[in-house]
Design a protein around this nucleic acid. Sequence first.
DNA 1: GTGAAAGCGCTAACAG
DNA 2: CTGTTAGCGCTTTCAC
Lengths: 337, 337
Amino acid sequence: MTVARERPTLEAVARRAGVSRATVSRVVNGSTTVAEEIRVRVRRAVEEMGYVPNQAARSLVTQRTDSIALVLTEEPNRVFSDDQVFPGIIRGVSQELEAADRQLVLMMASSTAGHERIERFAGGRHVDGVMIASMHGADPLPAALARMHIPVVCGGRPLGRAHALPYVDVDHTGGVSAAVRHLLGTGRRRIATIAGPQDMIAGIDRLAAYRAALADSDRRSIVAVGDFTRESGAVAMRQLLADDPQLDAVFVASDLMAHGALRTLREAGRRVPDDVAVVGFDDIEMARFTDPPLTTVRQPIVEIGRQLARLMVRVIAGEQVESAVLLPTELVVRDSS
Amino acid sequence: MTVARERPTLEAVARRAGVSRATVSRVVNGSTTVAEEIRVRVRRAVEEMGYVPNQAARSLVTQRTDSIALVLTEEPNRVFSDDQVFPGIIRGVSQELEAADRQLVLMMASSTAGHERIERFAGGRHVDGVMIASMHGADPLPAALARMHIPVVCGGRPLGRAHALPYVDVDHTGGVSAAVRHLLGTGRRRIATIAGPQDMIAGIDRLAAYRAALADSDRRSIVAVGDFTRESGAVAMRQLLADDPQLDAVFVASDLMAHGALRTLREAGRRVPDDVAVVGFDDIEMARFTDPPLTTVRQPIVEIGRQLARLMVRVIAGEQVESAVLLPTELVVRDSS
DNA sequence: GTGAAAGCGCTAACAG
DNA sequence: CTGTTAGCGCTTTCAC
């Protein structure tokens, strides 16, 4: 006595309902040109047999897979560092894709080998489109895929050959401006910055925005560069202190680096915010628990994911979007400034 | 002048190489029974035309998809809280799957609707198997899928109907025992615990282990229950202090809760570790930055993902594994104890 | 409104 | 060792 383990096919359902395969297909796909009575009969058969369409067979003829790749092009340790950027994007994407009834296929691509894998995969049309969440503006993958006529959207403003692709990013400039204006407005005179790596879009844009904001006043810029890690923040802060012992404020391009900077300042005997004001960027959860709690620029990470997915679906649908979506950032004032 | 946008098919490659479809298929799939000369010729044709096999067509006949689902059954905010558990698992899984040349399909399932989606998806054999990373031992999904004869493995020891499924978990008991023994060994007399939620496997197992470890000595247990969040840790600590003002140590079932507890202790004027020793569990990155740095039990999160993927691949291959993989935990002593 | 028939691109016997 | 031949399960004209 074996259980009916075989999944029923359209054929089987058709036999049971006493109609043709084509009719069952129509009902399953919601065609309106089916008589009510028959539709009911078919639906019952589907129900009773637990019929589920075979995606492979369907894709073979429709040329669509209804699944979309999210590619994270970053070294794994960065992908899941505790700044929560990638997890947030994944979450937003998967929310939105679920609503659009698409499947999310997640791909990590650290190495060049990984890139090749992805080109093969997407090139073979195993997914309908590719969302690339790269923090490296000069990543060659987006352009490579676009050249193969694969629908692509980017998380993070793309640089170089891919600059014309649709993308979603946050308003780095607006956030940084607000931060610098806040510092100026509270009477700070020597405002330094700890910038992010200059091969990453967030690093580039935030430094440019800092410079632009200061240029509006008559203050000169004082810059040290980190790589978005705590450790680099601590080191950069030491360097800044050595370069300009008089500084009374520092805008740090990420909360993680700001955390490191806070430690350095304490070790150097500077009080925050009395001697030196500190403003970070990201508003990671930890920002509320540093000592003192960190003033920072909040960016809507999960929303990036949502918008990314929404944009992707539109591109796949053939809409000729060449837009950029810029999400607002917001200064959150806490005790460090 | 249009570019050759159409992907070439086996047929096309075969024509170009002057052989049959079957032969090309053999070469592409690495069959050894092809003459060297022909193999070279076919490979060149593949190369020149940029041929990539169509996964849908292949799946249709092989009945395999070479992709595997990772289901995260948790409310989204918990999935990506900063304890980094899920991100770590995703990372491990994707590493291992990449090595095994399988695709990772990520599915979030918060609601019951989500569960249904997943049953449909997996039931339709859109993936070869399902890895379920649920922290709720009593999750009905694993058993439901197993009943449909879908290969399933669990991250986190499953309870109830699914208890016989292969799973990967960390050695909660060993870690907690080490923590309690350490506290006992450093002369603590009244060791309380802040437990996790009792509907989650980590909460259950860690509390049971605490009780067992204390039972070995003659100390009585002092328990408050939290839900793994910082806030609940702070609240539970207050309650513990009220219940037993004499307590001189507390084992907290998660670092996040331990962080909250630390805050409460400071507010209550207790010095850590002088008055009260604190030991956490997880070893999240933040543990090194609390004040004082947190003694905690380290668990190899990424490794869970790796083992999970490895187990899944074996199950899909038809091996009759009914094993459990228990990963070691390790006490990391810092300044809070 | 419904059914028959023709593939989608590939693999896997089975001959030769 | 290579080619021929059947499908895998589904959608989609095209007749009826």
